[in-house]
Design a protein around this nucleic acid. Structure first.
Length: 463
RNA sequence: GGCUGAGUGGCAGAAUGGCUAUGCAGCGGCCUGCAAAGCCGUGGAUGUCGGUUCGAUUCCGGCCUCAGCCUCCA
């Protein structure tokens, strides 16, 4: 039985989908004005694993991950760059697709963009006005009346009085209550705008997600996900808007992933301490980054460091080493104890560190049995690949992974040259010229190439 | 200030009211021409002070420390 931690009730609970066998999942994607950083990568990878796992246990998942392509930051960045908003967002959407593809993140079933949903957004704002949850402020904005919505603060565990007591609530004279938030912003000169019953303007920050999610998945759907920082106010406001407009319950399960940290501090745009995905991928294979993300539970924080990526590389090397040189087979083993334990880990709120531990035990079993019984080892290898696939790992040809090396931009010897040296060294070994054999091995090692003499001859890999 | 979460071996990171996580690193052995990889074995941990209990790292309470949210942020 799959259990998922639900932020709404602050505990794990058995997952029961609204429609049997089907899951509607919406994840807040990116605001596209810059490259993906490691924090974005974490959201993408974590929910990719959620989708893969749900599908692996038989659910038909409709996965929606939006793109926010209109907001203050985008407008500002486009202005700074002297390019149009369309050019800017197109560029970063393209970049995001490149990054996620490298990371092995499957495309969502729908990838709606805010600017494609203006009619729906306007309709929802009108519904909120009609239902008495919103008002037209004297500056032309349409604002949400937070105090009218029962249960505001349930998701983030905040109470209205506490929020009011906070010193950091923005002051805006047009709002009846400082906590009210903007649904529709009246256009300022030279800003992009759309026609609406309240004059030209553009959507507020939260409404686009309400519009996109309910359109793609219906007014009431199963799971909504995103980073912890979206819990408040973004998701809190989404609930207020959606339920206020539709009159229906919005989402059953809210999932929030933890942050990526650097030196015990949140990685974020505003702190400027972020690494972009493409920066990191210059140094490490994408699968290493993916593995690194999955080494901690999705709700925990994940500390970004070179050392942790190194360790990830080594760990993945161990798994690929077990897979290396196994004969091809389609056979499935009779013993499914590894599979069972893997599933126990995953159904416990997607416990990927525990699931990875099972993978290593499987690898040990393969290494143990491969000499006496290579056939059984091959079957176990299949299982390892299959389980790895649920995590989006281990789908590379082992030789390719092991020989691609550490740093992608590193120029080294061509494989042909390495093979030639290996042949020369074999000859030296055959005539017991150990010093020559060791010289070749050492000279390759200084170039990051490790030679390993095995039963089947000498193989090489990069350090 | 309010609220939330966390503190596990050298590092990373799970789990658990009593029994071996796992990976990397260390140590010993096997294997190897020597290595590497692999296998076997091994050392080493639960912030702190109390409480509950036959027994707590695990449950409860205080304290300390850290992070996050309360403002744009995945």
């Amino acid at each position: 039985m799959l259990t998922i931690y639900n932020t709404l009730i602050k505990q794990k609970a058995p997952f029961i989908s609204i429609k049997p066998g089907k899951v509607g999942l919406y994840v807040c994607g990116m605001t596209v004005y810059d490259y993906c950083h490691v924090g974005h990568a974490r959201v993408m990878v974590v929910f990719d694993v959620v989708v893969r796992y749900l599908r692996s246990i038989g659910y038909q998942v409709t996965y929606v991950r939006n793109i926010t392509d209109i907001d203050d930051k985008i407008i500002q960045r486009a202005k700074e760059n002297g390019e149009s908003i369309e050019q800017l967002t197109a560029r970063f959407i393209q970049a995001m697709h490149e990054d996620t593809e490298l990371l092995g993140v499957l495309r969502p079933d729908y990838e709606p963009r805010a600017t494609e949903f203006l009619p729906k957004i306007i309709e929802m704002v009108q519904q909120l006005l009609d239902n008495g949850y919103a008002y037209l402020a004297n500056n032309g904005d349409v604002c949400y009346t937070v105090s009218r919505f029962n249960g505001y603060g349930n998701l983030s565990g905040k109470r209205l009085e506490e929020l009011r007591a906070g010193e950091r609530v923005e002051v805006n004279e047009a709002k009846q209550d400082p906590l009210d938030f903007v649904l529709w912003k009246a256009a300022k000169p030279k800003e992009p705008s759309w026609e609406s019953p309240w004059g030209p303007g553009r959507p507020g920050w939260h409404i686009e997600c309400s519009a996109m999610s309910t359109t793609c998945l219906g007014n009431h759907f199963d799971i909504h996900g995103g980073g912890m920082d979206l819990q408040f106010p973004h998701h809190e406001n989404e609930i207020a808007q959606s339920e206020g407009a539709t009159g229906e319950s919005f989402v059953n399960v809210w999932m929030h992933n933890g942050f990526v940290r650097i030196n015990e501090e949140k990685m974020s745009k505003s702190l400027g301490n972020f690494f972009t995905v493409r920066e990191v991928l210059k140094q490490y294979p994408p699968e290493v980054m993916r593995y690194f993300i999955l080494t901690s539970h999705y709700r925990s924080s994940l500390n970004y460091s070179e050392q942790n990526l190194e360790t990830a590389q080594q760990a993945l090397t161990r798994l690929y080493t077990a897979l290396r040189g196994l004969p091809q087979t389609d056979q499935v083993g009779a013993d499914d104890s590894f599979q069972h334990r893997f599933n126990l880990a995953m159904e416990d709120d997607f416990n990927t560190p525990e699931a990875l531990a099972v993978l290593f035990e499987l690898a040990r079993e393969i290494n143990k049995i491969r000499v006496p019984d290579v056939f059984t080892a091959a079957i176990l290898g299949n299982e390892l690949r299959q389980l790895g696939d649920i995590l989006g790992l281990l789908q590379t040809v082992p030789e390719v992974f092991l020989q691609q090396g550490h740093h992608q931009d590193q120029v080294g010897l061509a494989p042909m040259e390495i093979e030639t040296l290996i042949v020369q060294r074999q000859a030296a070994r055959a005539r017991k010229d150990w010093s020559e054999a060791d010289r070749i091995r050492l000279s390759l090692k200084t170039q990051g190439i490790l030679l390993e003499d095995g039963d089947q001859g000498t193989t090489w890999r990069k350090e």
